[in-house]
């Protein structure tokens, strides 16, 4: 039997501080620019095997499906 999280936002990566509220359950990573954003999202997704989704406006969420 395997246990794990599914359909869950593991992390939020953003360059836009206004996009994420203070009460977020998921860890928030602030990226300095577009390139850093891509890199961070890739690293987190590779570590957690989550999938990166673009919310546009400089925000990515990593979701475990």
């Amino acid at each position: 039997m395997e246990f794990g999280l599914k359909e869950f936002i593991i992390a939020i990566v953003t360059t836009n501080k206004d996009m994420v509220g203070g009460s977020s359950n998921a860890p928030v990573f602030y990226a300095s620019d577009e390139e850093h954003l891509e890199r961070l999202a890739l690293l987190i997704s590779k570590t957690t095997t989550g999938m990166v989704h673009d919310l546009e406006g400089g925000t990515y969420i990593i979701v475990k499906h």
Binding site: E38, A41, L42, S45, V52, H53, D54, I61
Partner: peptide
């Protein structure tokens, strides 16, 4: 589906 990474 929503594919975030530009590389993908």
């Amino acid at each position: 589906m929503n594919i975030g990474l530009k590389e993908s």
